[in-house]
Each structure stands twice: as C-alpha cells, then as structure tokens.
C-alpha cells in the first residue's frame, strides 16, 4: 500500500504553497513514498516513556528588557523588496 498518495502530495504542496504540475506530483509521490517507507523503520523502536528532544541544550526562555533601539531604516528594510509603493511593500490585490 502506498504510504502517501498523489492526492496527499498535492494537498501537502498546497499547504506548503508550492505549485506542482501533474508530472511533478507523480515524481514527488514516488520519491516521498520511498523516503517515508524508509522512515517507517523508526517504528521498530519502543519509545514508550521516552521524552522527545526538541533541543539539545537545557534552556529556558531567553528574555530581555523591551527597549526601543535603532535597527534597520525603512530604506534598508525595503532594499531587497521586489515591488514597493510609497515606502510600503506592494503585492497583488488580496480582495477583488
């Protein structure tokens, strides 16, 4: 049985904001199915009662005072922006 179907791959691509062609969907389905199949080997291991590791360092939240400091100027912040207008980032209309 396939571990991931072409429909699921298309759904995942949609969630990840990737446009895929039919051909690409087929290729990614085969490859992802093989990778997920390989990852299934983790199921051999009994991990009941094992704490998940999200991070190797034993750290708590890192806090600092909330102070106003100079950072990037507007000009710098927009330096790499593909399209701007009146010092703002311009994108296609969201609403009709």
């Amino acid at each position: 049985m396939a571990r991931i179907t072409q429909e699921e791959v298309k759904h995942v691509a949609k969630l990840a904001r990737l446009a895929v062609t039919e051909e690409e969907a087929e290729m990614f389905t085969n490859q992802l199915d093989a990778i997920i199949g390989y990852a299934e080997q983790l199921k051999e291991l009994d991990t009941d009662g094992v704490e998940p590791t999200t991070h190797v360092l034993d750290m708590k939240n890192v806090l600092r005072e909330d102070e106003v400091k100079p950072w990037l100027t507007r000009e710098e912040a927009l330096k790499n922006t593909p399209d701007t207008q009146n010092g703002l980032i311009k994108v296609p209309a969201v609403l009709e």
């Binding site: 995942v12 990840a16 990737l18 997920i36 199921k43 991990t47 094992v50 704490e51 998940p52």
Partner: peptide, 25 residues
C-alpha cells in the same frame, strides 16, 4: 513537502514526535 507532511495533523505523532523520541535515544 516531507516536513509539511510529517507535521500535518494525523501524521505528527507517527513521524515528527516519534523522530524526536528517537533523537533522545
């Protein structure tokens, strides 16, 4: 896509969380 899949609801425990536990081992 693999990451989005592993984090998606229904698969999170089986893949992402499982992998975090194996990381501990």
């Amino acid at each position: 896509m693999l990451g989005t899949f592993a984090l998606s609801s229904g698969f999170y425990d089986a893949y992402y969380k499982k992998a975090q536990k194996v990381r501990t081992l």
